[in-house]
Amino acid sequence: MRSDKQSRTPMGLKIAAGLGLAFLHLPLLLIFLYAFTTEDKSYQFPPPGLTLKWFAVTWNRPDVWEALGLSVRVASISTVVALVLGTLCAAAVSQTRFFGRETISLLVILPIALPGIITGISLRSAFNLAEIPFSFWTIVLGHATFCVVVVYNNAVARFRRVSGSLIEASMDLGADGFQTFRHVILPNIGTALLAGGMLAFALSFDEVIVTTFTAGQQATLPIWMLEELVRPRQRPVTNVVAMVVVLVTFLPILAAYYLTRDGDQISGQGK
């Protein structure tokens, strides 16, 4: 509306933008639509009828709950591991100078640049060599490799803005290391960690490739969905799960967006 007043947008551009957005989001709406279809073997369009029964069916399927529970636990623990390791690593790289600092910085970021399949294969062969049986913890380890990167990247950017003299000022005023972390460092990097943590959680939650190599017999939610699509029975259950996942992940991402936006305003004022 406002852009109309300032300068008229050409009609062609408007249509192109609309088509682009439709291309991005219509498939998502189709997923939602098929969650209500009465037909359960093939995705027939338009759906012959609409029903809410798949929500009840999904609710009563123990395998859905199992996969969801596993995914939530894996993502939570990977995020916690990433938060601790990523923050420590960012602190070391940005606050101190030591031999090999740049190399470490590069090596930490590398896992996210590598194709997931390479990370997956190398982890699998490493676990085999070390004779570690596949378990919940091998999945967590696999996910932590790329979750650390996300947290590290967010934290290191913020750490660069926290000048070393702030930490010295805090110590000078009587705060020991823990109090300085609690009262000075955490408030200054908190929103960056929150954003990094949310992103790490989301990455871990929908990861497929690394998980297939490190999971053994357990199925996380995305892997469960992949298996479910191959089976021509009760297909809309997958759509119901997808819909719930979209709604549930959308809210924290929205929250992270608003929280980091405020954080940037605060640190901007401090300059």
């Binding site: 702030l166 110590m171 408030p187 004022q269 401090g270």
Partner: peptide
């Protein structure tokens, strides 16, 4: 360590805590 010395410093770049207001800075 610095936090056990009865000595305080005025830093060259002032090093005020950007996330605290002036009163909380002084009361730190």
């Amino acid at each position: 360590p610095p936090y056990r010395r009865n000595v305080n410093t005025v830093f060259q770049d002032y090093a005020l805590f950007p996330h605290l207001n002036v009163a909380d800075n002084v009361a730190y």
